[in-house]
């Protein structure tokens, strides 16, 4: 498989803090790839560099054969990378449907076409029945799904999910996992996720990268990674998996 996203030796420094340190990895086309690691490991910083919020201080990011590091977030979205935010950011005063229409309008010129596309996405994410509600009135699990829906409506080739399971109950987590699996299976969507909920990571990911202090300490298949002594020491701890 060819790599859809390839991160090559990137670093990001915030004054004295080296948040991401010479990190390299590749996400193949069609894979679900998870990034795990303790708080402060640099996961969200990594995401923000891929999504264009910051440019890396050094190194490069290549997506679908083109360099994207340093591009603005809107340009990166137009290249085909959709993202969610760790702290959800729906458009609060807009309805669920209108939130997703905004995403769909990236590739649909007309509002009517965008609405058709948005409603398809909402059905997929179990939000169709709530489409007329304002986003501000949704529960957290619904807002998390709305974030995914808005990102998906932009028709990304790669979806970046920043802790979409956090704060969900186990049954809600399972529902989200099966939605993401369906998406990956039916549309071949490549997914890069940051996640703390190991139950979801183990169920979803084909490949896991473990970050600690901004550097990769392990990478591989899930079963292999969770048995890695360095990973157990720095992240999983005494917790039984």
């Amino acid at each position: 498989m060819t790599a859809l996203l390839s991160v090559d030796n990137i670093s990001k420094r915030f004054r004295g803090l080296l948040a991401v340190d010479k990190l390299s990895f590749e996400v193949p086309q069609g894979q679900i790839f998870a990034v795990i690691g303790p708080n402060g490991a640099g996961k969200t910083t990594l995401f923000n560099m891929i999504a264009g919020v910051f440019a890396p201080n050094s190194g490069g990011i290549t997506f679908a054969g083109e360099r994207i590091d340093g591009l603005s977030p809107d340009k990166i979205c137009r290249r085909g990378i959709g993202r969610t935010f760790q702290i959800v950011r729906p458009f609060p005063a807009l309805t669920v449907e209108d939130n997703v229409i905004v995403g769909a309008l990236l590739h649909c010129q007309g509002v009517d076409d965008a609405r058709v596309h948005a409603l398809d996405v909402l059905r997929r994410l179990d939000l169709y029945d709530k489409r007329t509600q304002r986003a501000s009135g949704l529960t957290l699990p619904d807002r998390k799904r709305l974030e995914v829906a808005r990102a998906l409506a932009t028709d990304p080739k790669l979806l970046l999910l920043d802790e979409v399971m956090a704060g969900l109950r186990p049954t809600e987590t399972d529902r989200m996992v099966s939605i993401l699996q369906e998406l990956n299976r039916d549309t071949g969507l490549t997914i890069l996720l940051i996640e703390h909920v190991m139950r979801a990571v183990m169920a979803l990911a084909a490949q896991i990268l473990v970050l600690h202090h901004g550097a990769a300490i392990a990478e591989g298949a899930p079963e292999q990674v969770v048995r890695d002594p360095a990973v157990i020491h720095s992240y999983l701890g005494a917790e039984d998996i």
Binding site: P73, F91, A93, V102, L105, L106
Partner: peptide, 26 residues
């Protein structure tokens, strides 16, 4: 307001960073 641009404006009004990451040239 009912046009493509209208939706983009509302998105910018509601959350500019989220609008940008939805591909809008704010």
């Amino acid at each position: 307001l009912k046009s493509r641009m209208g939706y983009f404006w509302l998105a910018i009004r509601e959350d500019e960073e989220a609008a940008r990451s939805a591909g809008i040239d704010t």
